[in-house]
């Protein structure tokens, strides 16, 4: 009997309140459903467009990570395997040796390996690369442009607003879909493999 009386007490205001609560609950359930369904296809990450990049060197200094998440990537597919590499050697060197004073890279992060006459292969040692883009500039000027700056997504924190994007003079940073997070320029766009 007491229960029935309680039920009768439910007045209009309570009813409206309850209605609100239910609709909100339903809305939340719907929202989370949508979230679960759509999230997989709708995430974006930061990446830089090598075609816009002017290698100003700010990537090395402006990233929130103390060693920038922007690294030099070598698109081997485009590389000419030159002996006289514009990305590896300082312009105007006298000897084509691997001596440190001949190298363009300030941290010696490029490894030069002899393959066969007259080809050399160049590897980037990621731990040493600071993302300054000096080699990229050299490769663009004298070579095929196979050295390109890219955001390394294993290192990138994916800040809400990329600190480099803020100061990038070429406006080269943009959000790209997370399922295709690299943006190489040139002829080898689709041939890179995921690791």
């Amino acid at each position: 009997m007491a229960k029935k009386e309680k039920k009768k007490k439910l007045n209009r205001r309570d009813f409206i309140d309850r209605g609100f609560r239910f609709s909100i609950g339903a809305g939340l359930v719907g929202l989370s459903g949508l979230l679960a369904k759509k999230s997989f296809s709708n995430e974006y990450v930061w990446q830089l467009d090598p075609e816009k990049c002017i290698q100003c060197g700010r990537c090395a200094t402006e990233c929130v990570m103390t060693l920038s998440a922007v690294k030099c990537f070598h698109v081997y597919d485009m590389c000419g395997y030159c002996d006289l590499c514009g990305g590896y050697l300082r312009p105007g060197v006298k000897k084509l040796t691997t001596a440190a004073e001949n190298q363009l890279c300030p941290t010696s992060a490029i490894e030069r390996k002899f393959i066969e006459e007259p080809f050399f292969e160049y590897h980037i040692i990621e731990e040493l690369c600071i993302g300054c883009g000096k080699c990229v500039k050299g490769c663009n000027a004298f070579g095929n442009g196979s050295l390109q700056l890219q955001v390394n997504h294993r290192l990138c924190d994916d800040c809400n607003e990329c600190a480099i994007a803020r100061v990038c003079p070429a406006d080269a940073f943009e959000r790209v879909p997370a399922d295709n997070p690299y943006k190489f320029s040139g002829n080898s766009k689709d041939e890179t493999k995921k690791s």
Partner: peptide
């Protein structure tokens, strides 16, 4: 307060609705 709450809630619902709808349809 109840009216205010209702208004804010519907506003929030509208914003999230618009954003989610926009996101989902383009793909």
């Amino acid at each position: 307060t109840t009216i205010g709450r209702g208004t804010i809630l519907s506003g929030l619902a509208a914003i999230s609705g618009i954003l989610i709808f926009r996101n989902s349809k383009e793909k």
